[in-house]
Write a protein that binds this DNA or RNA. Structure first.
Length: 770
DNA sequence: TCTCCCTGTCATACA
DNA sequence: TATGTATGACAGGGA
């Protein structure tokens, strides 16, 4: 019978899927909800004791409208409806993106499929040439695509198990079957992933638009620069462009500056980006380590990548967290990092990066330290204390008209942050060492284990999810095992029709678990018309996790196992029947048995009867406890009216009814508690996975950011080094700074102005926080 | 014997 | 008010 059931179940399911695939609509509802108990029972299996609770409610409510809102049967109802609707939708070939993502998430632990496989690293870090910088936008986007960031970002809205974890094992099996079929047709799994295809299209679009934007922006920038130069020439001031001998040099320098900056940061043509680039250019080198000042690059760079999500805000949030953690960080690491000996400006100006070779295989911890050392001090008071350069006059290079000046002030200028205090003549040698290492704080004891796991993932080509799973397995010693998929009962998952995903919602698991919790004494009525429906509803799935709770009220522990398909063995149909009837019905003819065994059987059955059944039999109640408990009120009262019952009998009957209902209510209550605990476990599991993923993303971002800053720094140095005043002498970095204004012009301004703008910029995020 | 867990039951609140 | 449900608390029984 079992094999027949399995055969029929799988065969029908596959047949239905095939029919659906070729366009034949199969309405399974007709078969499942029709009054064909044997077929339904074969397919869905017998019900459990739990589901008997709403016998009367489910009567005449085949669609489930009469199910109590809190009933566990409602879970079955919704699960069944959802599965049926999905089966029907097969011919329409719709695979919801979020569900596929959820599927991927749940396959991660097995390492078979993962949408967030770690790539070897961001494109930016693949090489250090300028070529990489020419398309940081695309690079970042591609990196996002490669590393499953797009999925991760989508997960931000679908991470909650209640949403994304709604796939049952049946769903997964269906998707898997479809996938295999399409693989045979030459289609990969990514074909189903709408987000994947969309990301590919986006990337292509970006690649196309990027070139156009770059060209447009370059043209506008050149025009703006030429305009500025012309205006400046009209002022008659000692603008290099108009000074004989120095004109070509300066003009060439500015053009080169613009070109280099454009080449390095072709993010787009919008003003926001330009402001960001301006902050990038200002965030260039400082002679003495001022890592605190360099974090100004954070937001602008990330905003420049222009994703639909407010990455700048996210980073600010992240930085705020880091700031908090940085309060407690020890400064030893930063001291080492910041006390680099002065020497080559390129190597010393930029806190860590120049001296730290970019190593893709570097430990995440190390990488994080490096990235952090330069990134997190935007809001540090050190910035406020920066001495202002004495020079306050506007250079001839700066356009003299008010518009340009306003734009200059209005634009981002963090140049001062990058110039070495020594050059300002007011250097504070202790500034660097005093700065804490925020990421070091982030990577404190509590996070090192996760980081190390991520290190493992990056260094060893480990799937980070696997790493997190490894971590979970380590954590599983704590009594509550988070990995339910390792339950021995998961063997039953081979039965596609009787398994439910560990990610199923609590409602689904409720229905599933009830399929084998057996209450034989009061839980079964062979003459109940609604029983079949109950069984159908109650056997939607089998929850492996409940194997450990399967020791419920079964009839005979020695005869019954926890297997759900054996649950019907334990039903007790005897109730208040007379012992003689029981004997004749259940026992072999007396002639073939010894009296002792007969008595044994009687004793055994007697023991199996509940107290209320004993009482009912003693009081000669003329109907079964099952009827007493499960009949609707109207029918119950009608039943009572048919018999002439004494007050004691009536009282007992009402007590039996009350206790029976309460007993099942208690069972439901306890099962709900278990469901809650299990779902909480899954939530914790998901959150841990998300946490690991976010940490990994953060490290990746920091790494790419550090590399971008390196390149911007070198470009700034190159541009600034080529600038010459009217006498052909280079400008002093301690007195002047380059500023990339919002209108596309590149300005050389005194450091005092740059410092003022730095302070002004610092206040903005603070105000925004308020 | 003690402890833990499961189960049934009661009391109570609530719908 | 009657009925049903949910849940905390308690007790009994088995391992």
């Amino acid at each position: 019978m079992l094999s027949l059931k399995k055969y029929l179940t799988e065969g029908l399911l596959q047949f239905t899927i095939l029919l659906s695939l070729i366009g034949v609509r199969v309405d399974v509802d007709t078969y499942l909800t029709s009054q064909l108990p044997p077929l339904r029972e074969i397919i869905l299996g017998p019900s459990s004791a739990y589901t008997q609770t709403q016998f009367h409610n489910l009567r005449n409510t085949l669609d489930g409208y009469g199910i109590h809102p809190k009933s566990i049967d409602l879970d079955n109802y919704f699960t069944a409806r959802r599965l049926l609707s999905q089966v029907r939708a097969l011919d329409r070939f719709q695979v919801p993106t979020t569900e596929v993502n959820a599927w991927l998430v749940h396959r991660d632990p097995e390492g078979s499929v993962s949408g967030s496989q770690p790539s070897s690293g961001l494109t930016l870090e693949s090489s250090s040439g300028l070529q990489d910088v020419t398309s940081p936008d695309n690079g970042v986007r591609e990196s996002e695509t490669e590393q499953g960031f797009s999925e991760d970002l989508e997960d931000l809205g679908a991470v909650a198990p209640a949403v994304s974890g709604d796939l049952t094992k049946e769903d997964i099996d269906l998707i898997d079957i479809l996938w295999r079929q399409d693989i045979d047709l030459g289609a990969g799994r990514e074909v189903f992933d709408y987000s994947h295809r969309q990301k590919e299209q986006d990337v292509d679009k970006e690649l196309q638009d990027g070139g156009e934007q770059e060209d447009t922006w370059a043209g506008e920038g050149a025009e703006a620069l030429a305009r500025d130069l012309l205006v400046d020439g009209e002022t008659g001031e000692s603008f290099p462009a108009q000074v004989p001998g120095g004109e070509d040099q300066t003009a060439l320098s500015l053009e080169e500056c613009l070109r280099l900056l454009e080449a390095s940061c072709p993010f787009g043509e919008n003003a926001e980006f330009r402001a960001n680039v301006a902050s990038i250019t200002e965030a260039v080198p400082s002679e003495n380590e001022s890592p605190a000042l360099e974090n100004s690059l954070f937001s602008p760079l990330l905003t420049g990548t222009e994703s639909p999500f407010d990455l700048e805000q996210q980073w600010q949030d992240l930085m705020s967290i880091m700031e908090m953690q940085a309060m407690e960080v020890n400064t030893s690491a930063s001291e080492i990092l910041y006390n680099a000996p002065p020497g080559d400006p390129l190597s010393t100006n930029y806190s860590l990066a120049p001296n730290t070779p970019i190593n893709q295989n570097v430990s995440l911890h190390q990488a994080s330290l490096g990235g952090c050392s330069q990134d997190f001090s935007l809001f540090s008071s050190e910035v406020e204390n920066l001495p202002v350069a004495s020079s306050s006059t506007l250079l001839p290079l700066v356009p003299s008209n008010s518009t340009s000046l306003n734009s200059t002030f209005g634009s981002t200028n963090l140049a001062g942050l990058f110039f070495p205090p020594q050059l300002n003549g007011t250097a504070n040698d202790t500034a660097g060492p005093e700065l804490p290492d925020p990421l070091g704080g982030l990577l404190d004891e509590a996070m090192l284990d996760e980081i190390s796991l991520m290190d493992l993932a990056i260094e060893e080509g480990f799937n980070p999810v696997q790493a997190s799973q490894l971590e979970e397995e380590f954590d599983s010693d704590s009594g509550l095992s988070l990995d339910s998929s390792h339950s021995p009962s998961s063997l039953s998952s081979s039965e596609g029709s009787s398994s439910s995903s560990s990610s199923s919602s609590s409602s689904a698991s409720s229905s599933a678990s009830s399929s084998f919790s057996e209450e034989g004494a009061v839980g079964y009525s062979s003459d109940s018309e609604t029983l079949d429906l109950e069984e159908a509803e109650g056997a939607v799935g089998y929850q492996p996790e409940y194997s450990k709770f399967c020791r419920m009220s079964y009839q005979d522990p020695s005869q019954l196992s926890c297997l759900p398909y054996l649950e019907h063995v334990g039903h007790n149909h005897t109730y208040n029947m007379a012992p003689s009837a029981l004997d004749s019905a259940d026992l072999p003819p007396p002639s073939t048995l010894k009296k002792s065994s007969k008595e044994k059987q009687a004793d055994f059955l007697d023991k199996q009867m509940s107290r209320d059944e004993h009482r009912a039999r003693a009081m000669k109640i003329p109907f079964t406890n099952d009827k007493i408990i499960n009949l609707p009120v109207e029918e119950f009262n009608e039943l009572l009216s048919k018999y002439q019952l004494s007050e004691a009998q009536l009282s007992l009957i009402r007590d039996i009814r009350r206790r029976g209902k309460n007993k099942m209510a208690a069972q439901n209550c306890r099962k709900r508690k278990l469901d809650t605990i299990l779902n909480l476990e899954r939530d914790v599991e998901d959150l841990q996975r998300d946490k690991a993923r976010l940490l990994r993303e953060k490290v990746e971002f920091l790494r790419s950011l550090r590399q971008m800053k390196q390149k911007v720094q070198s470009l700034y140095q190159e541009v600034f080094g080529r600038l010459r005043d009217e006498n052909g002498r280079p400008y002093s970095p301690s007195q002047y700074a380059l500023q990339y204004a919002g209108d596309g012009s590149v300005l050389l301004i005194p450091r005092t102005m740059a410092d003022q703008q730095v302070r002004r910029q610092e206040r903005k995020p603070k105000d925004r926080r308020k």
